[in-house]
């Protein structure tokens, strides 16, 4: 059977070119990412984070940009077992659910407006609108939340800030200091210099998602790209905690106490 029949339907892409093996149009002989030969030239030479940047931005990062993205990826790699997205993945692991479902659970819970992907998108939109204008930030952070009805609930805190925090946590301070020192763009250094003013305007301390949003913006990612990257970069921690709980088993996993407001049948128990 010939495999060279002209296809009737096409997938359009500006990212990836594949050339077929001479004996099989469904097998790849060479793959090019934004014009670069992936297996012929880059493999063994390029780091994962540089490839990640190239995939998303279409151009190679500078060395400083790659270092910044790699450092951010390290900061985000494990939200820790207290984080709701990791908690969700562990709920999958403890019952022996499929690996994919554990990651899907982590993505679903980690997609939201509290420390999740949606928060990154909204925070990056704020960076794009306010830039390094403190007055613009103060106006923005003073605005009531958008109440347009959509699949997303109304935002309950300024994106990028911790609604339950008392002060800027040590890891947030450490991450901001480290990334601001590395950034060759404007936002992280400005955030570091103006942190107190922004936290006062937001009435909450900065969160790690707020640092990540500034870093993604400094790296030139769009809010949609930042949201995707944030979802991706937090997955390794969710995966290992899911695997770990599978080994520990359900007897060592919290089930929590229930208090029902309306509890027929309680009497006599």
């Amino acid at each position: 059977m010939t495999t060279n029949t002209k296809p009737k339907e096409m997938i359009h892409t500006q990212i990836w070119l594949e050339e077929p093996e001479p004996d099989n149009a469904f097998a790849t002989k060479a793959a090019y990412c934004h014009g670069y030969d992936v297996y012929g030239e880059m493999l063994g030479q390029i780091g994962w984070v540089e490839m990640l940047y190239l995939l998303f931005r279409g151009e190679m990062p500078t060395k400083r940009q790659a270092e910044l993205l790699e450092t951010l990826a390290v900061a985000l790699i494990n939200p820790g077992p207290r984080d709701p997205s990791v908690h969700a993945a562990m709920c999958g692991g403890v019952g022996g659910s499929t690996s994919a479902s554990c990651l899907m659970a982590a993505l679903a819970v980690g997609a939201g407006q509290l420390s999740g992907g949606r928060e990154i998108l909204l925070a990056m939109q704020n960076w794009n609108s306010c830039g390094t204008d403190i007055d613009a930030w103060q106006r923005r952070l003073g605005l009531p939340a958008d109440t347009t009805v959509s699949i997303w609930p109304a935002m309950e805190h300024p994106p990028g800030f911790d609604p339950h925090g008392i002060s800027t946590t040590t890891p947030v301070t450490q991450t901001l200091a480290c990334l601001a020192h590395m950034s060759t763009a404007a936002f992280l250094p400005w955030l570091s210099m103006n942190l107190h003013h922004l936290e006062t305007a937001a009435n909450h301390p900065l969160s790690l998602s707020g640092v990540a949003a500034a870093a993604f913006t400094d790296l030139g990612f769009t809010p949609e790209q930042g949201e995707m990257l944030y979802l991706l970069l937090r997955l390794p921690g969710t995966a290992v905690h899911a695997l770990e709980q599978k080994v520990y088993g359900h007897k060592k996993f919290p089930f929590f106490r229930l208090e029902l407001d309306d509890n027929p049948g309680e009497e006599g128990k």
Binding site: T3, K6, P7, M10, Q14, I15, E18, P20, Y36, E41
Partner: peptide, 16 residues
Amino acid sequence: LSCHHIRYEGPPKRTW
């Protein structure tokens, strides 16, 4: 999807 199903519209091949 064969390789012919992909219409590449990005930058031309370049040396890395």
